[in-house]
Design a binder for these strands. Sequence first.
DNA 1: CGGTATCCACAAGGATACTG
DNA 2: CAGTATCCTTGTGGATACCG
Lengths: 119, 119
Amino acid sequence: MREPLPADMFDELCPSTLNPIRFGDKWAALIIRCLEGGPRRFSELRLPLSRVTPKVLTTSLRNLERDGLVTRTVLRGAHVEYTLTPLGRSLLEPLDAACTWAEEHWDELLDARESHQAS
Amino acid sequence: MREPLPADMFDELCPSTLNPIRFGDKWAALIIRCLEGGPRRFSELRLPLSRVTPKVLTTSLRNLERDGLVTRTVLRGAHVEYTLTPLGRSLLEPLDAACTWAEEHWDELLDARESHQAS
DNA sequence: CGGTATCCACAAGGATACTG
DNA sequence: CAGTATCCTTGTGGATACCG
């Protein structure tokens, strides 16, 4: 059994939402991480990405598909599954490196912004 | 002596300009790499970033400054120098990882886009 | 030299509602 | 369930010109 996805990935403290690190379009990195644990259905992705409207999520998924990072598979019964390709999976490594950096330096970034605000 | 900056970093084949990898705003990654070799003046940055208008370059530099990745130093004689902070320098590692990934998988990305075009 | 000022175009993202 | 259809707002980047 795969791990269920978290109910909400939009914790304000989540470094993956912070510049200066972005992969692809606004939600690409989060989507890819959602697919890390295996194939997911559209509705499964909507849960942790509840603040992304279906239109935007579709657009982002189509972009990932176009770049060969994700495949879209239609199953019997009006079900659809999104899966990371080997190429998409290979992106996890630099993506993790970026996320790790953001986590490690999160405080410094916040501090920099705050003291910049002050001046 | 530091290495002179290349005359033009906008080679169409430069993977750093390709999605799905972007760090910060559109030019942040290129700027950071331009500063990798040491402090640079505004006009020095304009050379390899000749297609970035001064306004946009300024905006991007201000963003990097705000985030504590770059410092702006006014020298005597109306000269200005931009330098990577230790924080900014620490970003080089994941940035390089991302660029390396892009270089390695550049062809696959192009192929994916092409065959997607076909369908 | 190192920027600003102004104006502008377009793409990206979002709100809301609806559908095969 | 897995999306579309519409419409709209915003932000980002760019063109051009000018300034201390």
